[in-house]
Nucleic acid binder design. Structure first.
Lengths: 254, 254
DNA sequence: ATAATAGTGTCTTTTAGACAATATGTA
DNA sequence: TACATATTGTCTAAAAGACACTATTAT
């Protein structure tokens, strides 16, 4: 990060105040996924209908400007945005990427850092966000998203599509879907989550072998009464911060 | 990306100009890797010794402030930074991540978007950057980096470490290292690159089978005279924009 | 002819896919 | 006891690891 050398004239001119010329707008957005009613769903907020803000009334990813007084760093900012909408404190959170350019926000050159959160649904029943008048879960259907790509504010349709793609691709070889379940969970439940996110059935035997063989993945916590005729074993994650990577991808030979 | 609602008082106050309060500094940095003298190397630039800029004389990743007039978007900005130092036009370039916070730059809250470039060494012999007084390649050794982590400016030591980690991990299951070679290249050369980046030997037979079996990866371009007793077949990449993903990771059983 | 490197073949091991068989707890 | 679901077992297939073998060409 070196200061770029503009204006080659005046070689020893006193350095101007750092970038007092136009600075881009800086925001953080969060793509929040959870599993509700046997479906992958994403959390969206409705933008205010009144006022001078762009995209009034449209649905958008939760997020907003970095507050240089409140936020120590980007991750803290993402957690704050999430807390404002869901009262969730410590979800699985990873960076998805950045989108920045001149045209994505009518107010000017802007850049957003997008995070990617996976929540167990049980953990957010509580409040629905204090100030969030309109916060809703939307199912992410097989094709991609329920909403047409450009029905979301800004370039959030694209961002959401990228998030879904990343999730689907990582599910092939990591334990990411486990973060969508409240603990304790059973192997049949976990397998079901994989099937929902992947959109195809997974072989029971292979799935169990893989899951139980993975080091530092699951920990037994005793049988669970799920209402099933035979009580399945309950498990919890050894590490809720980091997913486990499997040595191969899931693949259907048929 | 909704405007965060500060100052709950004055419910209907006229909206202030967008974030005319402190905006973070926005930069783009590029971690440029290439393969030189049978070693993975990274491109660093030396910060000016004179002037009011932070970290004078220290080595840093090439990069700098986004210029909202010059740059259409983040990727264009990264390409511009790269061009300024290497005269390379279209390398393999992917986002690595963002680092942002209050303390990483003494000039204030700053956020950097880091890209990750892989270059075939042959392509940058030409110039060494017009204005770049000090641009040098540094070998990335097995332990991580040649330079101690905190000998780089800003948090660039951390960033570089993350880039190396990402490269090493992706090498296990993608064709990324192929972007480090000028075309045409031979399979023994490609295998050598994998061994260099991974830091361990790779079985010849398994490597060839995997490489040749991967769809849309390699294209034959006729035998190459490399000086070897038997002329090996030359190949070029079908797609220089996107790496190929292999269905399994490399693993040594011994 | 020999040496050195390119390229192939064979055998074993691992793990997933397919699917059948067994175990267990509730109605 | 019957049934539904959990769990295990068996067989096959695909692909990697290990390593030996063959092919080709410059000297």
């Amino acid at each position: 990060m070196s200061t770029s050398k503009k204006s080659p004239a005046l070689p020893s001119a006193p350095a101007a105040l750092v970038q007092d010329i136009a600075r881009p707008l800086v925001t953080v957005d969060v793509v929040v996924f959870s599993l509700i009613d046997e479906a992958l769903q994403v959390l969206l907020v409705q933008r205010p209908r009144q006022g001078s803000e762009p995209f009034p009334g449209q649905w958008a990813l939760p997020g907003g400007f970095v507050d240089v007084l409140l936020d120590d760093d980007l991750r803290a900012c993402a957690l704050r945005k999430l807390r404002e909408k869901t009262a969730v404190e410590s979800p699985y959170l990873e960076q998805l990427g950045s989108w920045g350019g001149r045209l994505r926000d009518p107010r000017g050159w802007s850049v957003t850092q997008v995070y990617f959160a996976l929540l167990p649904w049980a953990s957010l029943q509580p409040r629905k966000g204090a100030n969030a008048a309109d916060v809703r879960w939307f199912p992410v259907d097989a094709a991609g998203v329920t909403l047409a790509d450009d029905s979301l504010a800004f370039d959030h349709g694209q961002i959401l599509a990228a998030a879904v793609k990343r999730l689907r691709s990582k599910v092939e070889y990591t334990s990411l879907p486990a973060f969508l379940l409240p603990e304790p969970f059973t192997l049949p439940q976990l397998q079901r989550v994989y099937e929902i996110v992947l959109g195809r059935p997974v072989d029971k035997s292979a799935f169990r072998t893989r899951a139980l063989a993975a080091p530092d993945f699951l920990e037994e916590v005793g049988p669970q009464a799920t209402g099933a005729p035979r009580s399945p074993m309950g498990y919890r994650l050894v590490n809720r911060q980091q997913p486990v990577t499997f040595p191969r991808t899931f693949q259907s030979r048929s």
